[in-house]
Design a protein around this nucleic acid. Structure first.
Length: 560
RNA sequence: GCGCCCGUAGCUCAGUUGGAUAGAGCGUCGGACUUCGAAUCCGCAGGUCGCAGGUUCGAAUCCUGCCGGGCGUACCA
Protein backbone atom coordinates (compact mmCIF):
# COMPACT_ATOMS: atom_id res chain seq x y z
CA UNK A 1 0.00 0.00 0.00
CA UNK A 2 1.20 3.41 -0.79
CA UNK A 3 0.27 6.77 0.58
CA UNK A 4 -2.82 8.43 -0.77
CA UNK A 5 -1.05 11.02 -2.87
CA UNK A 6 1.05 8.37 -4.58
CA UNK A 7 -2.01 6.31 -5.38
CA UNK A 8 -3.73 9.28 -6.97
CA UNK A 9 -0.57 10.18 -8.84
CA UNK A 10 -0.34 6.68 -10.21
CA UNK A 11 -3.88 6.78 -11.49
CA UNK A 12 -3.26 10.15 -13.10
CA UNK A 13 0.01 9.12 -14.65
CA UNK A 14 -1.59 6.11 -16.26
CA UNK A 15 -4.53 8.12 -17.50
CA UNK A 16 -2.46 10.69 -19.36
CA UNK A 17 -0.38 8.19 -21.28
CA UNK A 18 -2.90 7.49 -24.07
CA UNK A 19 -3.71 11.19 -24.31
CA UNK A 20 -0.10 12.23 -24.69
CA UNK A 21 0.33 9.43 -27.19
CA UNK A 22 -2.50 10.48 -29.42
CA UNK A 23 -1.27 14.05 -29.11
CA UNK A 24 2.06 13.03 -30.57
CA UNK A 25 4.09 13.34 -27.38
CA UNK A 26 6.60 10.58 -26.87
CA UNK A 27 6.51 8.56 -23.67
CA UNK A 28 10.12 9.58 -23.21
CA UNK A 29 9.09 12.94 -21.88
CA UNK A 30 5.95 12.46 -19.88
CA UNK A 31 4.96 15.73 -18.27
CA UNK A 32 5.49 15.85 -14.53
CA UNK A 33 2.16 15.48 -12.84
CA UNK A 34 1.77 17.59 -9.74
CA UNK A 35 -0.75 17.18 -7.01
CA UNK A 36 -1.55 19.89 -4.53
CA UNK A 37 -3.83 20.16 -1.58
CA UNK A 38 -6.18 23.03 -2.42
CA UNK A 39 -6.60 25.86 0.03
CA UNK A 40 -10.34 25.63 -0.22
CA UNK A 41 -12.08 22.41 0.70
CA UNK A 42 -14.68 22.91 -2.04
CA UNK A 43 -11.85 22.18 -4.43
CA UNK A 44 -11.45 18.68 -3.12
CA UNK A 45 -8.80 16.84 -1.17
CA UNK A 46 -6.26 16.97 -3.96
CA UNK A 47 -6.12 19.00 -7.13
CA UNK A 48 -4.07 18.65 -10.26
CA UNK A 49 -3.33 21.21 -12.92
CA UNK A 50 -2.09 18.59 -15.35
CA UNK A 51 -4.72 19.37 -17.94
CA UNK A 52 -3.69 23.00 -17.84
CA UNK A 53 -0.03 22.25 -18.26
CA UNK A 54 -0.81 19.89 -21.13
CA UNK A 55 -2.69 22.56 -23.08
CA UNK A 56 0.49 24.11 -24.30
CA UNK A 57 2.07 21.01 -25.81
CA UNK A 58 -1.16 19.42 -26.97
CA UNK A 59 -2.63 22.68 -28.22
CA UNK A 60 -6.04 21.73 -27.03
CA UNK A 61 -8.66 23.15 -24.73
CA UNK A 62 -7.72 22.32 -21.12
CA UNK A 63 -11.24 21.40 -20.07
CA UNK A 64 -11.48 18.92 -22.95
CA UNK A 65 -8.17 17.38 -21.94
CA UNK A 66 -9.42 17.16 -18.39
CA UNK A 67 -12.55 15.35 -19.53
CA UNK A 68 -10.50 12.84 -21.42
CA UNK A 69 -8.20 12.25 -18.47
CA UNK A 70 -11.17 11.53 -16.27
CA UNK A 71 -12.48 9.12 -18.91
CA UNK A 72 -9.19 7.21 -18.86
CA UNK A 73 -8.85 7.00 -15.11
CA UNK A 74 -9.06 3.58 -13.54
CA UNK A 75 -11.01 4.17 -10.39
CA UNK A 76 -10.33 1.58 -7.78
CA UNK A 77 -13.10 0.76 -5.39
CA UNK A 78 -13.58 2.89 -2.29
CA UNK A 79 -10.80 5.33 -2.99
CA UNK A 80 -12.08 8.32 -4.92
CA UNK A 81 -15.65 9.42 -4.36
CA UNK A 82 -15.68 11.85 -7.24
CA UNK A 83 -13.55 13.84 -9.62
CA UNK A 84 -14.60 17.29 -10.71
CA UNK A 85 -13.37 19.42 -13.52
CA UNK A 86 -13.29 22.95 -12.20
CA UNK A 87 -12.35 26.42 -13.29
CA UNK A 88 -10.09 26.57 -16.31
CA UNK A 89 -9.44 22.82 -16.15
CA UNK A 90 -8.37 21.74 -12.70
CA UNK A 91 -9.03 18.18 -11.70
CA UNK A 92 -10.40 18.09 -8.19
CA UNK A 93 -10.27 14.78 -6.38
CA UNK A 94 -12.60 13.98 -3.54
CA UNK A 95 -11.41 11.09 -1.44
CA UNK A 96 -13.71 8.56 0.17
CA UNK A 97 -13.45 9.46 3.88
CA UNK A 98 -12.78 5.88 4.94
CA UNK A 99 -9.85 5.63 2.57
CA UNK A 100 -7.77 7.98 4.67
CA UNK A 101 -7.37 5.52 7.48
CA UNK A 102 -4.86 3.51 5.50
CA UNK A 103 -2.57 6.52 5.72
CA UNK A 104 -2.21 6.04 9.46
CA UNK A 105 -1.35 2.39 9.04
CA UNK A 106 1.50 3.47 6.78
CA UNK A 107 2.86 5.83 9.41
CA UNK A 108 2.80 3.12 12.05
CA UNK A 109 4.27 0.51 9.76
CA UNK A 110 7.26 2.66 8.90
CA UNK A 111 7.57 4.23 12.34
CA UNK A 112 10.90 6.01 12.77
CA UNK A 113 11.59 5.46 9.07
CA UNK A 114 8.37 7.18 8.09
CA UNK A 115 9.12 9.98 5.66
CA UNK A 116 12.15 8.25 4.20
CA UNK A 117 12.55 9.11 0.55
CA UNK A 118 14.47 7.22 -2.05
CA UNK A 119 15.28 10.29 -4.11
CA UNK A 120 19.01 10.46 -3.42
CA UNK A 121 19.68 6.96 -4.68
CA UNK A 122 22.94 6.82 -2.81
CA UNK A 123 24.42 9.82 -4.59
CA UNK A 124 27.32 11.20 -2.61
CA UNK A 125 26.80 14.68 -1.28
CA UNK A 126 29.09 16.75 0.84
CA UNK A 127 27.83 19.60 2.94
CA UNK A 128 30.52 22.03 4.01
CA UNK A 129 29.49 24.54 6.60
CA UNK A 130 30.56 26.82 9.45
CA UNK A 131 34.21 26.75 8.35
CA UNK A 132 34.95 29.72 10.57
CA UNK A 133 38.55 30.87 10.82
CA UNK A 134 40.16 29.53 13.97
CA UNK A 135 41.02 33.04 15.09
CA UNK A 136 38.23 33.45 17.58
CA UNK A 137 35.20 31.79 19.10
CA UNK A 138 32.05 31.15 17.09
CA UNK A 139 29.42 33.84 17.19
CA UNK A 140 25.73 33.69 16.63
CA UNK A 141 25.98 34.01 12.84
CA UNK A 142 28.05 30.84 12.76
CA UNK A 143 25.31 29.23 14.80
CA UNK A 144 22.81 29.89 12.08
CA UNK A 145 25.12 28.42 9.48
CA UNK A 146 25.73 25.43 11.73
CA UNK A 147 22.05 24.72 12.24
CA UNK A 148 21.26 25.21 8.56
CA UNK A 149 24.05 22.97 7.35
CA UNK A 150 23.51 20.28 9.93
CA UNK A 151 19.81 20.00 9.24
CA UNK A 152 20.27 20.18 5.50
CA UNK A 153 22.67 17.27 5.77
CA UNK A 154 20.23 15.37 7.95
CA UNK A 155 17.40 15.91 5.49
CA UNK A 156 19.49 14.78 2.55
CA UNK A 157 20.64 11.70 4.43
CA UNK A 158 17.03 10.87 5.20
CA UNK A 159 16.23 11.26 1.53
CA UNK A 160 18.64 8.58 0.46
CA UNK A 161 21.80 10.57 -0.18
CA UNK A 162 25.17 9.48 1.16
CA UNK A 163 26.03 12.63 3.07
CA UNK A 164 29.22 13.86 4.66
CA UNK A 165 29.54 16.93 6.84
CA UNK A 166 32.77 18.83 6.51
CA UNK A 167 34.45 21.79 8.18
CA UNK A 168 37.11 23.67 6.26
CA UNK A 169 39.72 25.07 8.59
CA UNK A 170 41.25 28.28 7.29
CA UNK A 171 44.46 27.73 9.18
CA UNK A 172 46.79 29.27 6.63
CA UNK A 173 47.45 32.83 5.64
CA UNK A 174 48.39 35.99 7.41
CA UNK A 175 45.31 36.04 9.64
CA UNK A 176 46.88 33.16 11.53
CA UNK A 177 50.10 35.12 11.94
CA UNK A 178 48.04 37.99 13.23
CA UNK A 179 46.51 35.62 15.71
CA UNK A 180 49.94 34.38 16.79
CA UNK A 181 51.21 37.94 17.20
CA UNK A 182 48.15 38.89 19.19
CA UNK A 183 48.88 36.08 21.60
CA UNK A 184 52.56 36.96 21.71
CA UNK A 185 51.86 40.52 22.81
CA UNK A 186 49.32 39.45 25.39
CA UNK A 187 51.76 36.89 26.71
CA UNK A 188 54.52 39.46 27.14
CA UNK A 189 51.96 41.68 28.77
CA UNK A 190 50.97 38.91 31.15
CA UNK A 191 54.62 38.69 32.19
CA UNK A 192 54.60 42.34 33.04
CA UNK A 193 56.12 43.76 29.87
CA UNK A 194 54.61 47.06 28.79
CA UNK A 195 53.15 46.42 25.39
CA UNK A 196 51.68 48.77 22.88
CA UNK A 197 49.05 46.44 21.45
CA UNK A 198 49.06 47.09 17.69
CA UNK A 199 46.02 47.94 15.58
CA UNK A 200 44.39 45.31 13.47
CA UNK A 201 45.04 42.55 15.96
CA UNK A 202 42.58 40.41 17.84
CA UNK A 203 41.54 42.21 20.96
CA UNK A 204 39.05 39.78 22.42
CA UNK A 205 39.22 38.65 26.01
CA UNK A 206 39.78 35.13 24.76
CA UNK A 207 43.29 36.09 23.66
CA UNK A 208 44.10 37.25 27.16
CA UNK A 209 42.75 34.02 28.56
CA UNK A 210 44.97 32.10 26.19
CA UNK A 211 47.93 34.22 27.28
CA UNK A 212 47.23 33.44 30.93
CA UNK A 213 46.95 29.73 30.16
CA UNK A 214 50.15 29.81 28.18
CA UNK A 215 51.92 31.58 31.00
CA UNK A 216 50.87 28.85 33.36
CA UNK A 217 52.02 26.16 31.00
CA UNK A 218 55.40 27.51 29.89
CA UNK A 219 56.17 30.15 32.48
CA UNK A 220 58.75 32.63 31.24
CA UNK A 221 60.23 30.43 28.53
CA UNK A 222 59.29 32.91 25.79
CA UNK A 223 59.82 36.05 27.85
CA UNK A 224 61.43 38.73 25.68
CA UNK A 225 62.28 36.17 23.01
CA UNK A 226 62.08 38.00 19.66
CA UNK A 227 58.78 37.57 17.90
CA UNK A 228 60.25 36.14 14.69
CA UNK A 229 61.81 33.22 16.51
CA UNK A 230 58.68 32.05 18.25
CA UNK A 231 55.78 33.21 16.15
CA UNK A 232 55.00 29.73 14.75
CA UNK A 233 54.73 28.36 18.26
CA UNK A 234 52.34 31.07 19.32
CA UNK A 235 50.29 30.69 16.18
CA UNK A 236 50.01 26.95 16.61
CA UNK A 237 49.13 27.21 20.27
CA UNK A 238 46.42 29.80 19.68
CA UNK A 239 45.01 28.06 16.60
CA UNK A 240 44.82 24.66 18.26
CA UNK A 241 43.23 26.00 21.39
CA UNK A 242 40.64 28.04 19.52
CA UNK A 243 39.79 25.21 17.18
CA UNK A 244 39.30 22.90 20.14
CA UNK A 245 36.90 25.44 21.55
CA UNK A 246 35.03 25.63 18.28
CA UNK A 247 34.67 21.86 18.19
CA UNK A 248 33.37 21.87 21.71
CA UNK A 249 30.84 24.60 20.98
CA UNK A 250 29.56 22.79 17.92
CA UNK A 251 29.36 19.57 19.84
CA UNK A 252 27.22 21.27 22.47
CA UNK A 253 25.07 22.59 19.69
CA UNK A 254 24.51 19.06 18.44
CA UNK A 255 26.64 19.47 15.33
CA UNK A 256 29.15 16.76 14.44
CA UNK A 257 31.39 16.73 11.41
CA UNK A 258 32.64 13.72 9.54
CA UNK A 259 35.67 15.56 8.32
CA UNK A 260 37.80 18.48 9.46
CA UNK A 261 39.77 19.64 6.46
CA UNK A 262 42.81 21.77 7.07
CA UNK A 263 43.82 24.37 4.51
CA UNK A 264 47.44 23.85 5.49
CA UNK A 265 47.38 20.37 4.01
CA UNK A 266 46.64 21.91 0.63
CA UNK A 267 49.86 23.89 0.90
CA UNK A 268 51.96 21.08 2.24
CA UNK A 269 50.81 18.69 -0.45
CA UNK A 270 51.31 21.16 -3.25
CA UNK A 271 47.66 20.91 -4.15
CA UNK A 272 47.41 24.57 -5.02
CA UNK A 273 50.31 24.36 -7.43
CA UNK A 274 48.80 21.27 -9.06
CA UNK A 275 45.42 22.94 -9.40
CA UNK A 276 46.98 25.90 -11.13
CA UNK A 277 48.82 23.53 -13.45
CA UNK A 278 45.54 21.85 -14.35
CA UNK A 279 43.92 25.17 -15.07
CA UNK A 280 46.95 26.25 -17.04
CA UNK A 281 46.68 23.13 -19.17
CA UNK A 282 43.09 24.09 -19.86
CA UNK A 283 44.27 27.57 -20.84
CA UNK A 284 42.45 29.34 -18.06
CA UNK A 285 45.58 30.85 -16.53
CA UNK A 286 47.57 33.79 -17.82
CA UNK A 287 50.21 36.14 -16.50
CA UNK A 288 49.82 39.86 -16.23
CA UNK A 289 51.72 42.49 -14.24
CA UNK A 290 53.69 39.81 -12.50
CA UNK A 291 50.67 37.93 -11.21
CA UNK A 292 48.90 34.80 -12.39
CA UNK A 293 45.25 35.26 -13.25
CA UNK A 294 42.39 32.84 -13.56
CA UNK A 295 40.17 33.56 -16.53
CA UNK A 296 36.89 33.35 -14.64
CA UNK A 297 35.23 35.71 -17.13
CA UNK A 298 35.15 32.73 -19.49
CA UNK A 299 32.35 31.43 -17.28
CA UNK A 300 30.46 34.60 -16.63
CA UNK A 301 32.36 36.17 -13.76
CA UNK A 302 32.61 39.93 -14.08
CA UNK A 303 36.40 40.05 -13.94
CA UNK A 304 39.32 37.67 -13.90
CA UNK A 305 40.82 36.75 -10.53
CA UNK A 306 44.35 36.60 -9.25
CA UNK A 307 45.54 33.21 -8.06
CA UNK A 308 49.22 33.96 -7.52
CA UNK A 309 50.18 37.45 -6.46
CA UNK A 310 53.15 39.35 -7.82
CA UNK A 311 54.94 38.60 -4.56
CA UNK A 312 54.72 34.92 -5.36
CA UNK A 313 52.13 34.05 -2.72
CA UNK A 314 48.96 32.35 -3.77
CA UNK A 315 45.63 33.88 -2.86
CA UNK A 316 42.93 32.50 -0.65
CA UNK A 317 40.90 31.90 -3.78
CA UNK A 318 43.63 29.69 -5.21
CA UNK A 319 43.50 27.54 -2.10
CA UNK A 320 39.75 27.39 -2.36
CA UNK A 321 40.02 26.21 -5.96
CA UNK A 322 42.38 23.46 -4.88
CA UNK A 323 40.06 22.61 -2.03
CA UNK A 324 37.06 22.20 -4.30
CA UNK A 325 39.09 20.21 -6.77
CA UNK A 326 39.99 17.93 -3.91
CA UNK A 327 36.37 17.60 -2.89
CA UNK A 328 35.35 16.38 -6.32
CA UNK A 329 38.35 14.07 -6.52
CA UNK A 330 37.06 12.46 -3.37
CA UNK A 331 34.10 11.33 -5.43
CA UNK A 332 31.26 13.59 -4.38
CA UNK A 333 28.54 13.96 -6.96
CA UNK A 334 27.32 17.18 -5.44
CA UNK A 335 29.03 19.59 -3.15
CA UNK A 336 27.06 22.04 -1.05
CA UNK A 337 28.76 25.08 0.47
CA UNK A 338 27.03 27.10 3.10
CA UNK A 339 28.42 30.61 3.29
CA UNK A 340 27.64 33.79 5.10
CA UNK A 341 25.79 36.13 2.78
CA UNK A 342 28.63 38.64 3.01
CA UNK A 343 30.60 36.26 0.79
CA UNK A 344 28.11 36.40 -2.02
CA UNK A 345 30.51 38.33 -4.22
CA UNK A 346 32.61 35.20 -4.21
CA UNK A 347 29.99 32.86 -5.65
CA UNK A 348 30.52 33.51 -9.33
CA UNK A 349 34.26 32.98 -9.30
CA UNK A 350 33.91 29.74 -7.39
CA UNK A 351 31.37 28.41 -9.84
CA UNK A 352 33.64 29.50 -12.67
CA UNK A 353 36.43 27.64 -10.93
CA UNK A 354 34.69 24.32 -10.79
CA UNK A 355 33.56 24.66 -14.38
CA UNK A 356 37.12 25.30 -15.43
CA UNK A 357 38.05 22.15 -13.54
CA UNK A 358 35.62 20.21 -15.65
CA UNK A 359 32.57 20.02 -13.43
CA UNK A 360 29.06 21.15 -14.08
CA UNK A 361 27.99 24.39 -12.45
CA UNK A 362 25.13 22.56 -10.76
CA UNK A 363 27.56 20.18 -9.04
CA UNK A 364 28.30 22.97 -6.60
CA UNK A 365 25.37 24.40 -4.70
CA UNK A 366 26.16 27.49 -2.72
CA UNK A 367 23.70 28.44 -0.02
CA UNK A 368 24.00 31.93 1.37
CA UNK A 369 22.90 32.43 4.93
CA UNK A 370 21.96 35.96 5.87
CA UNK A 371 23.17 37.78 8.93
CA UNK A 372 21.68 37.40 12.38
CA UNK A 373 20.73 40.51 14.32
CA UNK A 374 21.12 39.76 17.96
CA UNK A 375 18.57 41.54 20.14
CA UNK A 376 17.68 41.63 23.77
CA UNK A 377 14.07 42.57 24.42
CA UNK A 378 13.91 44.30 21.07
CA UNK A 379 17.12 46.27 21.47
CA UNK A 380 20.21 45.48 19.38
CA UNK A 381 23.11 43.92 21.23
CA UNK A 382 26.43 45.52 20.40
CA UNK A 383 28.39 43.19 18.16
CA UNK A 384 31.76 44.61 17.30
CA UNK A 385 34.08 41.81 16.34
CA UNK A 386 36.97 44.15 15.90
CA UNK A 387 36.81 45.43 19.43
CA UNK A 388 36.20 41.91 20.58
CA UNK A 389 32.82 42.72 22.07
CA UNK A 390 30.52 40.09 20.82
CA UNK A 391 28.19 37.51 22.15
CA UNK A 392 29.55 34.08 21.40
CA UNK A 393 27.50 31.14 20.25
CA UNK A 394 28.41 29.44 23.49
CA UNK A 395 26.92 32.25 25.54
CA UNK A 396 23.74 32.16 23.48
CA UNK A 397 23.34 28.41 23.90
CA UNK A 398 24.05 28.67 27.62
CA UNK A 399 21.40 31.31 27.94
CA UNK A 400 18.56 30.07 25.75
CA UNK A 401 19.30 26.41 25.25
CA UNK A 402 20.23 24.36 22.23
CA UNK A 403 16.69 23.50 21.15
CA UNK A 404 15.37 27.06 21.12
CA UNK A 405 18.44 28.35 19.32
CA UNK A 406 18.35 25.68 16.63
CA UNK A 407 14.64 26.01 16.08
CA UNK A 408 14.73 29.78 15.78
CA UNK A 409 17.55 29.58 13.26
CA UNK A 410 15.37 27.30 11.17
CA UNK A 411 12.23 29.42 11.19
CA UNK A 412 13.42 31.61 8.37
CA UNK A 413 14.52 31.06 4.84
CA UNK A 414 18.28 31.24 4.91
CA UNK A 415 18.42 34.24 2.60
CA UNK A 416 16.21 36.25 4.89
CA UNK A 417 17.90 38.19 7.67
CA UNK A 418 17.00 36.96 11.11
CA UNK A 419 16.29 38.87 14.29
CA UNK A 420 17.34 36.71 17.20
CA UNK A 421 15.93 38.04 20.43
CA UNK A 422 17.50 36.47 23.48
CA UNK A 423 14.52 37.29 25.67
CA UNK A 424 12.02 35.82 23.22
CA UNK A 425 14.15 32.72 22.82
CA UNK A 426 14.00 32.17 26.55
CA UNK A 427 10.29 32.82 26.86
CA UNK A 428 8.27 29.73 27.54
CA UNK A 429 5.29 30.94 25.60
CA UNK A 430 3.73 31.05 22.24
CA UNK A 431 6.25 33.67 21.15
CA UNK A 432 8.71 30.88 21.13
CA UNK A 433 7.88 28.42 18.39
CA UNK A 434 10.01 25.60 19.70
CA UNK A 435 7.87 25.16 22.80
CA UNK A 436 4.73 25.12 20.75
CA UNK A 437 5.95 22.03 18.95
CA UNK A 438 7.67 20.38 21.87
CA UNK A 439 4.61 20.94 24.01
CA UNK A 440 2.53 18.99 21.54
CA UNK A 441 4.91 16.08 21.75
CA UNK A 442 4.95 16.15 25.53
CA UNK A 443 1.19 16.38 25.56
CA UNK A 444 0.89 13.32 23.33
CA UNK A 445 3.24 11.39 25.56
CA UNK A 446 1.23 12.43 28.54
CA UNK A 447 -1.93 11.06 26.98
CA UNK A 448 -0.32 7.67 26.65
CA UNK A 449 0.90 7.90 30.20
CA UNK A 450 -2.65 8.50 31.41
CA UNK A 451 -3.92 5.71 29.17
CA UNK A 452 -1.45 3.38 30.78
CA UNK A 453 -2.50 4.44 34.27
CA UNK A 454 -6.12 3.82 33.42
CA UNK A 455 -5.33 0.44 31.97
CA UNK A 456 -6.37 1.28 28.43
CA UNK A 457 -4.85 -1.43 26.26
CA UNK A 458 -2.64 -0.42 23.32
CA UNK A 459 -1.28 -3.73 22.09
CA UNK A 460 -0.85 -2.31 18.63
CA UNK A 461 1.99 -0.22 20.02
CA UNK A 462 3.89 -3.46 20.47
CA UNK A 463 3.04 -5.19 17.25
CA UNK A 464 -0.49 -6.27 18.09
CA UNK A 465 -3.40 -5.97 15.71
CA UNK A 466 -4.39 -2.48 14.65
CA UNK A 467 -7.61 -1.07 16.04
CA UNK A 468 -10.62 -0.42 13.84
CA UNK A 469 -10.17 3.09 12.49
CA UNK A 470 -13.71 3.52 11.24
CA UNK A 471 -14.64 5.72 14.24
CA UNK A 472 -12.31 8.43 12.92
CA UNK A 473 -14.84 10.47 10.98
CA UNK A 474 -14.42 14.06 12.18
CA UNK A 475 -13.20 16.52 9.55
CA UNK A 476 -10.42 17.54 11.92
CA UNK A 477 -9.28 13.95 12.22
CA UNK A 478 -9.18 13.48 8.48
CA UNK A 479 -7.38 16.81 8.19
CA UNK A 480 -4.66 15.64 10.55
CA UNK A 481 -4.34 12.33 8.75
CA UNK A 482 -4.05 14.09 5.43
CA UNK A 483 -1.31 16.28 6.76
CA UNK A 484 0.59 13.35 8.25
CA UNK A 485 0.49 11.88 4.77
CA UNK A 486 2.13 15.01 3.41
CA UNK A 487 5.21 14.65 5.57
CA UNK A 488 7.27 12.69 3.02
CA UNK A 489 6.38 15.26 0.41
CA UNK A 490 7.59 18.07 2.68
CA UNK A 491 10.88 16.29 3.18
CA UNK A 492 11.31 15.75 -0.51
CA UNK A 493 10.71 19.40 -1.27
CA UNK A 494 13.07 20.49 1.52
CA UNK A 495 15.75 18.24 0.06
CA UNK A 496 15.12 19.36 -3.47
CA UNK A 497 15.17 23.06 -2.71
CA UNK A 498 17.73 22.79 0.10
CA UNK A 499 15.37 24.68 2.37
CA UNK A 500 15.27 23.20 5.87
CA UNK A 501 12.82 25.82 7.14
CA UNK A 502 10.01 24.01 5.35
CA UNK A 503 10.07 21.40 8.06
CA UNK A 504 9.57 23.86 10.90
CA UNK A 505 6.68 25.48 9.06
CA UNK A 506 5.14 22.11 8.47
CA UNK A 507 5.54 21.23 12.12
CA UNK A 508 3.88 24.41 13.24
CA UNK A 509 0.90 23.76 11.02
CA UNK A 510 0.58 20.14 12.00
CA UNK A 511 0.84 20.92 15.67
CA UNK A 512 -1.73 23.70 15.38
CA UNK A 513 -4.20 21.18 13.98
CA UNK A 514 -3.50 18.86 16.84
CA UNK A 515 -3.80 21.46 19.60
CA UNK A 516 -7.08 22.62 18.16
CA UNK A 517 -8.39 19.08 17.87
CA UNK A 518 -7.24 18.28 21.38
CA UNK A 519 -9.10 21.23 22.84
CA UNK A 520 -12.37 20.17 21.27
CA UNK A 521 -12.23 16.41 21.56
CA UNK A 522 -11.22 13.85 24.09
CA UNK A 523 -8.81 11.14 23.06
CA UNK A 524 -9.51 9.02 26.11
CA UNK A 525 -13.29 8.83 26.23
CA UNK A 526 -16.10 6.54 27.26
CA UNK A 527 -16.35 4.74 23.94
CA UNK A 528 -13.54 2.15 23.89
CA UNK A 529 -13.53 1.77 20.10
CA UNK A 530 -13.34 5.49 19.55
CA UNK A 531 -10.62 5.76 22.18
CA UNK A 532 -8.55 3.10 20.43
CA UNK A 533 -8.88 4.77 17.06
CA UNK A 534 -7.98 8.18 18.45
CA UNK A 535 -5.02 6.80 20.35
CA UNK A 536 -3.83 5.28 17.12
CA UNK A 537 -4.07 8.68 15.47
CA UNK A 538 -2.27 10.27 18.41
CA UNK A 539 0.52 7.72 18.17
CA UNK A 540 0.97 8.46 14.48
CA UNK A 541 1.23 12.15 15.29
CA UNK A 542 3.83 11.43 17.90
CA UNK A 543 5.84 9.44 15.38
CA UNK A 544 5.89 12.26 12.86
CA UNK A 545 6.71 14.90 15.47
CA UNK A 546 9.56 12.83 16.83
CA UNK A 547 10.92 12.10 13.37
CA UNK A 548 10.80 15.70 12.25
CA UNK A 549 12.25 17.11 15.45
CA UNK A 550 15.01 14.58 15.25
CA UNK A 551 15.90 15.84 11.78
CA UNK A 552 16.03 19.36 13.16
CA UNK A 553 18.27 18.19 15.94
CA UNK A 554 15.74 19.36 18.48
CA UNK A 555 14.77 17.26 21.46
CA UNK A 556 11.28 15.75 21.55
CA UNK A 557 10.60 15.75 25.29
CA UNK A 558 8.12 13.46 27.03
CA UNK A 559 7.67 15.99 29.81
CA UNK A 560 8.39 19.67 29.99
C1' G B 1 28.94 53.28 -10.94
C1' C B 2 28.47 47.82 -11.35
C1' G B 3 26.79 43.04 -9.18
C1' C B 4 23.90 39.88 -5.73
C1' C B 5 19.80 39.49 -2.10
C1' C B 6 15.33 41.53 -0.20
C1' G B 7 10.39 44.95 -0.39
C1' U B 8 3.57 40.61 1.24
C1' A B 9 -1.46 42.78 7.39
C1' G B 10 0.72 47.70 12.62
C1' C B 11 5.43 44.15 13.65
C1' U B 12 8.21 39.41 12.36
C1' C B 13 7.69 36.27 8.36
C1' A B 14 5.38 31.94 5.08
C1' G B 15 3.43 31.30 0.30
C1' U B 16 3.98 23.88 -2.26
C1' U B 17 8.89 26.72 -7.89
C1' G B 18 3.11 29.86 -12.73
C1' G B 19 -2.65 28.10 -10.17
C1' A B 20 -8.59 28.92 -8.11
C1' U B 21 -11.22 33.83 -3.07
C1' A B 22 -3.62 36.04 -0.09
C1' G B 23 -1.68 32.83 4.85
C1' A B 24 0.45 32.18 9.96
C1' G B 25 2.55 34.06 14.57
C1' C B 26 3.04 38.41 17.49
C1' G B 27 0.40 42.75 18.86
C1' U B 28 -5.12 45.00 19.89
C1' C B 29 -9.95 43.59 21.67
C1' G B 30 -13.42 39.70 23.52
C1' G B 31 -14.15 34.62 25.15
C1' A B 32 -12.83 28.91 27.00
C1' C B 33 -9.71 25.06 32.61
C1' U B 34 -14.42 20.43 38.15
C1' U B 35 -12.16 17.03 32.22
C1' C B 36 -6.26 13.38 28.52
C1' G B 37 -0.95 19.09 30.33
C1' A B 38 -4.30 26.61 29.62
C1' A B 39 3.50 26.39 27.47
C1' U B 40 -3.23 25.23 24.78
C1' C B 41 -7.74 26.66 22.24
C1' C B 42 -12.00 29.83 20.02
C1' G B 43 -13.62 34.54 17.87
C1' C B 44 -13.17 39.85 15.83
C1' A B 45 -10.21 43.33 13.09
C1' G B 46 -6.24 44.05 9.75
C1' G B 47 -3.89 43.91 2.15
C1' U B 48 -3.23 48.47 -4.30
C1' C B 49 1.75 41.57 -2.48
C1' G B 50 7.10 48.72 -3.19
C1' C B 51 5.56 51.33 -8.27
C1' A B 52 4.73 50.91 -13.68
C1' G B 53 4.66 48.05 -17.88
C1' G B 54 5.30 43.09 -20.34
C1' U B 55 4.87 37.49 -21.10
C1' U B 56 -0.46 33.86 -21.01
C1' C B 57 -5.93 30.63 -20.07
C1' G B 58 -3.78 32.52 -15.06
C1' A B 59 1.55 36.47 -11.90
C1' A B 60 3.07 37.71 -4.96
C1' U B 61 5.92 34.15 -8.07
C1' C B 62 9.02 34.88 -14.76
C1' C B 63 11.07 39.50 -18.01
C1' U B 64 12.18 44.93 -18.32
C1' G B 65 12.42 49.83 -16.09
C1' C B 66 12.09 52.84 -11.87
C1' C B 67 11.75 53.67 -6.08
C1' G B 68 13.51 52.07 -1.31
C1' G B 69 16.72 48.86 2.12
C1' G B 70 20.93 45.35 3.04
C1' C B 71 25.52 43.38 1.36
C1' G B 72 29.52 42.99 -1.88
C1' U B 73 32.74 45.23 -5.40
C1' A B 74 41.42 43.40 -3.02
C1' C B 75 47.49 40.90 -6.02
C1' C B 76 42.69 40.21 2.48
C1' A B 77 41.08 35.79 4.40
Amino acid sequence: MALMRNRILEILNKAIVPICHSGGLSDQSPPCVELEIPKISQHGDYASNIALSLTRCLKRNPREIAKEIVKHMEMSEGLISKVEIAGPGFLNFFIEPGAWHQELVEVHAQAEKYGYQEIGKGKRVQVEFVSANPTGPLHIGHGRGAATGDVMAAILAFCGYAVEREYYINDAGNQMDTLGRSLYYRYQEALGEPVDFPDGHYQGDYIMELARDLTEEVGTRYHKVPLDEVLPDFTRYAGDRILAGIREDLDNFGVRFDQWFSETTLHSQNAIQRTIETLKANRYIYEQEGALWFRSTAFGDEKDRVVVRANGLSTYFAADLAYHKDKFERGFDTVIDIWGADHHGYVERMLAGIEALGRKRSDLQIILVQLVNLLRAGKPVAMSTRAGEFVTLREVIDEVGKDAARYIFLTRRSDSPLDFDLEVAKMQSNDNPVYYVQYAHARLCSIFEVARERGVPCEWLNGGANPDLAPLVLPQELEIIKMLGEYPEILASAAKTLEPHRISYYLNELVALFHSYYNQNRILGDDPDLTQARLYLAAALRIVLANALSLLGVNAPEKM
